[in-house]
Design a protein around this nucleic acid. Structure first.
Length: 548
RNA sequence: GCCCCCAUCGUCUAGAGGCCUAGGACAUCGGCUUUUCAAGCCGGCGACAGGGGUUCGAAUCCCCUUGGGGGCGCCA
């Protein structure tokens, strides 16, 4: 029996997004489960869409998730090259076969002509437009003349005029009628193969046995099956995965980020110039096109613009989640459950290794799923709680490495590990900074949250401020600046004054952290240190409106 | 518009004719705990889209309706 081979074949248009990650994961899991090979192939045949170094980002994201491929870029393998752009001779050779056998032909229509035909068909009340096979195919001489004249030349495949049945592993048998099929383009005017054609040549040559891909590819399958037949290759088993949506029901796509920012721009009523300035781009045409919704802005520009407008970009790419502070194993676990379920019991926490053992195509569902970030957050919280100290430190350092310098940058491992401990119950690594960041900011850069100042220091005739005044000498005189001792001293002070500990700890917290959020008060003061604690109390008191 | 796919709590799902008074998880609500933010613990609310069949019996099978999604590119 021949061994199982799966593949993930993304086009390098940017970071790996959630949908792609799940497709990659499922293919990886299937290969692992069945003891086969998982290959990675880069589909970079669209010269207009390729983005510089996007494949490197893709590889990094895949690796970060732990989905190591057995064959592909950087890994090599017996069926390379693994970039479609380097396989052109293979495609040409196969087209030759089709052309010689009369199973494909040249077509010379321009895009405008096709568009006109499309319009005419609709005007004539036909149901949808389908390319009609010409009665006469251009001769070699005509093709040459067309090329010389700069007219487009493509190659179309002669689609057999019959129904096709896709034996889908998830959906069952799906019949697509002959009237839905037409002679599709297999070689573009620029000489590169189209997806529907290259994917067949590559999967066949790479001996792929199982293709797990998004359901948006279902209707492509008949054409591909026909190509397998034409070449005399055995088709792989197909399984079309349900699609992943956002919670609001919109498709989870990279465009989502542009949309969010575009809407913010609209609300802010910014003109093109201002947008270009904020985004740091000097291409006026690009900005205009982007505002119309015709194109996407480069990642960095979009992020810059989003920051300037103070809008949160939705997490779409795996890299976004990494930057938000999730552990890769959390994403893997969560994504695995989008469309697949173990069945039987009630378990839903799995490591990658466990998934490799449990996964099966039979247990993939048919219904589309929504990506619930709340549940992801809950998974993250639980995973962080269960993770070892080493794993958490590693995760925090990774998070720091993909984010801009912040208050936690540059802290040593011992201190970072300490912070993690103090943040028990945190949901993502970003929470560690949220909770402890202020303690490591230079004193002069510390910001006081107006609401916290008002509620904790000023309220009740400045009761909080009064506590701070009294605490100042008390703290200044302490010889033992350790968390247990500080807690004890504050507890005693609160008792003497007949106050709840909150009435004492909160004012201190606001003075020292600028907000009502920080680790346990004793620990907080230790992290800030005696000198800076006293200085910050002084500064907080000084910044208050005249005491009443 | 045409073709195809799908349909269980708000969300992810378990369920493969009687084990279902429909189970779990997240969210939500209430309580406990409490020096903040979280976390944690206990409890509550909450679904078989609708209508026809088939059957002794249907969330499970069939049909229709409705709703959602995908496709109809020289994108992948």
């Amino acid at each position: 029996m021949e061994s199982v081979r799966t593949r993930f074949a993304p086009s390098p248009t940017g970071y790996l997004h959630v949908g792609g990650a799940r497709t990659a994961l499922f293919n990886y899991l299937l290969a692992r489960r069945l003891g086969g090979k998982f290959a990675l192939r880069i589909e970079d045949t669209d010269q207009t869409r390729n983005i510089e170094a996007a494949d490197a980002k893709l590889l990094e994201d895949l690796r970060w998730l732990g989905l190591q491929w057995d064959e592909g870029p950087q890994a090599g393998g017996p069926f390379g090259p693994y970039y479609q752009s380097q396989r052109r001779d293979l495609y040409e050779e196969h087209v030759r076969r089709l052309l010689d056998a009369g199973q494909a032909y040249y077509a010379l229509e321009t895009r405008e002509e096709l568009e006109a035909m499309r319009k005419a068909a609709i005007a004539a009340g036909e149901k949808g437009f389908r390319y009609r096979r010409p009665t006469h195919f251009p001769s070699d001489a005509e093709v040459r003349r067309a090329r010389d004249a700069g007219r487009p030349v493509v190659v179309r495949f002669k689609m057999p005029e019959r129904d096709f049945v896709v034996h889908d592993q998830i959906l069952g048998d799906v019949t697509i009628g002959a009237q839905e099929l037409s002679d599709f383009v297999i070689v573009k005017n620029d000489g590169w193969p189209t997806y529907n054609y290259a994917v067949v040549v590559d999967d066949a040559l790479m001996q792929v046995t199982h293709v797990l891909r998004g359901q948006e590819h279902l209707m492509n399958t008949p054409g591909q099956l026909a190509l397998y037949e034409a070449f005399g290759y055995a088709p792989p088993a197909f399984a079309h995965l349900p699609i992943i949506f956002n919670m609001n029901g919109t498709k989870m796509s990279k465009r989502e980020k542009d949309k969010v920012v575009r809407d913010a721009v609209k609300v802010a009523q910014l003109d093109d110039e201002r947008v270009a300035e904020l985004a740091g781009v000097d291409d006026a045409a690009l900005v205009a096109a982007w505002r119309r919704g015709d194109t996407q802005l480069p990642g960095p520009a979009l992020e810059k613009l989003a920051r300037a407008l103070a809008v949160h970009l939705p997490e779409i790419d795996i890299h976004d989640f990494r930057k938000s502070g999730y552990l890769p194993e959390v994403l893997v676990n969560f994504i695995a459950l989008l469309g697949w379920s173990p069945g039987g019991g009630e378990r839903e926490r799995f490591t990658l290794a466990e998934l490799c053992r449990e996964f099966s195509v039979e247990r993939i569902g048919k219904t589309n799923a929504r990506f619930d970030r709340e549940k992801l957050l809950a998974f993250s919280t639980a995973a962080l709680e269960a993770a070892s100290a080493e794993r958490k430190l590693e995760g925090l350092r990774d998070w720091l490495s993909v984010n801009e310098r912040g208050p936690l940058s540059g802290l040593d491992d011992a201190l970072l590990a300490r912070l993690i401990e103090l943040c028990r119950g945190f949901r993502t690594f970003a929470d560690v900074e949220y909770k402890c960041g202020a303690l490591f900011v230079p004193d002069e850069a510390l910001r006081y949250d107006p609401k916290a100042v008002k509620d904790v220091l000023l309220k009740g005739d400045g009761a909080g401020a009064k506590v701070l005044q009294e605490l100042k000498p008390l703290l200044a005189g302490l010889a033992d600046w350790t968390a247990p001792h500080l807690d004890e001293v504050l507890r005693r002070y609160a008792e003497e004054r007949g106050l709840g500990l909150g009435k004492v700890a909160q004012p201190l917290r606001v003075a020292v952290a600028g907000t009502t959020i920080s680790p346990q008060i004793g620990e907080t003061l230790v992290l800030v240190g005696r000198e800076r604690t006293l200085a910050r109390i002084e500064r907080a008191l000084g910044a208050l409106p005249a005491a009443t």
